[in-house]
Design a protein around this nucleic acid. Structure first.
Length: 422
RNA sequence: GGGGAGGUUCCCGAGUGGCCAAAGGGGGCAGACUGUAAAUCUGUUGGCGAAGCCUUCGAAGGUUCGAAUCCUUCCCUCCCCA
């Protein structure tokens, strides 16, 4: 399937700046970029749409460019944001850029120029403010800028918009111009909220270089609850860094996708072929309880991000946590399985101090206060080694240890925490 | 620079001297149901405790027996005019 058709089928295309795009992508080898803000030390699931779009470009022989916003990340893009960005320090940004760079290497082949990763700090740092206003600012008309949706919506909100963020579109336009000049980049990919910034860049390239550039926006992916993609039920981001989001949790995030989203996500976040996805779609209709599509989605995405070992660990942990009893597992296996689960360590003597379940919940940070712990026990949402505990003053002793090493706490249906002693 | 409106618990938002740990909604958490789903229903949602106590309504002071509510100064946001 040609690239454009494949992107369309998979659901990557929200809008394009030119009707010529399908033809160009089929007949030419182009360089296309997508920007990523290094506001955290890891990429997260929300970035996957952009990453996978670049992956498809590379698979079809085009050259993808990952633009790290080392400079622009210090400003903050107002597009799609309801409030002003908290500004980060240079050190933090640099460190984030380095860490995200390593993650991109899981997806794209950067060998011998097949893909590029650039940081816009490298071209923004030498420019003075006066030069920038003269050379770039001159080509922007205030009327157009004010008409941009990203600006308008913030102007109409009661947080307003600072001059800093207002200037963002100039910076992003200059990125595009620079990549056009330096790498022959003629295309920018971005989320639908980037439309205004992308077209601004295309205009700048046309004005200054009399050249035609293109833009493609991907839809804002939300889950069935309308929430932005890549948030756990707790509202935390699902990160690609295993230190931030364990492979187990990552796997679980995908397994838990509702029927209404799973096919869409298979298309976007896996490279599975049309035949297999169609078969999985049928399975969702015919035997939804089997959740074959969810399992396959989780399997493929986890392996892609965390490798075969990460997937194996996630699957093993899942089998235990949603399956058998915990008593008949030996200590090593137990700790291995629960390696991905948040844990706490307490001194062995703790068990001899006549503590009760409420103490255990608080000291293992399962509950945020004693009142919270007490309430949750009362509600029947606390399990000790998978056995429900309903007495607030349930004593905790050495007898509760599994395999002489740990206690497994479960809060609610699927939130586990291991407490190790020693 | 001038004028006006505001800043309340996770969010929105009510509350104008005691009946306010603060209405209502949203969100979260838990339970039932279930497919580790959706929808629905129920409970719960500052901290410590048995009662009760402690901390909280942009910040700091002040008035008062008593303040989220009144006064002063400061910080921040929005709107209009210049």
């Amino acid at each position: 399937m040609p690239l454009y058709e494949e992107l369309a089928w998979r659901g990557f295309i929200e809008n394009k700046t030119s009707e010529e795009l399908p033809k160009i992508l089929a007949n030419e080898r182009i360089t296309a970029y997508d920007g990523f803000d290094p506001t955290a030390d890891s990429l997260h699931v929300g970035n996957l749409v952009g990453i996978m779009a670049l992956v498809h470009f590379q698979r079809h022989g085009h050259t993808p460019v990952v633009l790290m916003g080392g400079a622009t990340g210090m400003i903050g893009d107002p597009s799609g944001k309801s409030k002003e960005r908290v500004l980060l320090t240079t050190e933090t940004i640099d460190s984030n850029v380095a860490k995200q760079k390593a993650q991109f290497e899981h997806f794209l082949d950067f060998d011998s120029g097949k893909a590029l990763l650039v940081n816009n700090a490298s071209w923004f740092a030498p420019i003075t403010f006066i030069d920038f206003l003269r050379d770039v600012g001159k080509h922007f008309r205030l009327g157009e800028m004010l008409a941009k949706e990203s600006v308008k919506s913030r102007m109409n909100s009661d947080v307003g918009i600072s001059y800093t963020e207002f200037s963002y579109m100039l910076l992003q336009s200059y990125d595009f111009l620079h990549l056009h000049d330096a790498h022959g980049c003629t295309m920018q990919i971005g989320g639908s909220d980037q439309w205004g910034n992308i077209t601004a860049g295309i205009d700048l390239i046309r004005k200054l270089r009399s050249a035609q550039a293109y833009g493609l926006t991907t839809p804002l992916i939300t889950d069935s609850t309308g929430q932005k993609l890549g948030k756990t039920a707790e509202g935390e981001n699902v990160w690609l860094d295993p230190k931030r989001t364990s492979p187990y949790k990552f796997y679980q995030y995908w397994v838990n996708q509702p029927d209404s989203d799973v096919v869409r996500f298979l298309k976007l976040f896996t490279l599975l072929e049309q035949d297999e996805i169609t078969a999985l779609e049928k399975s969702v209709e015919d035997e939804p309880h089997a959740r074959a599509a969810q399992k396959r989605l989780a399997q493929v995405t986890t392996e892609m991000v965390h490798g075969a070992n990460g997937l194996a660990a996630a699957e093993k942990a899942t089998a235990i946590m949603f399956g058998g009893a915990i008593e008949d597992v030996d200590g090593e296996t137990l700790l291995d399985i629960f390696a991905d689960v948040p844990s706490a360590t307490l001194a062995p003597s703790w068990l001899d101090d006549g503590k009760i379940i409420v103490d255990l919940l608080v000291e293992s940070e399962t509950a945020k206060s004693r009142g919270d712990a007490r309430r949750r026990v009362k509600e029947g949402g606390i399990y000790l080694n998978n056995v429900r505990v309903q007495e607030e003053d349930r004593a905790i002793t050495r007898g509760d240890l599994v395999a002489d090493t740990a206690i497994v706490i479960r809060a609610g249906k699927k939130n586990y925490r291991v407490v190790r002693f020693g």
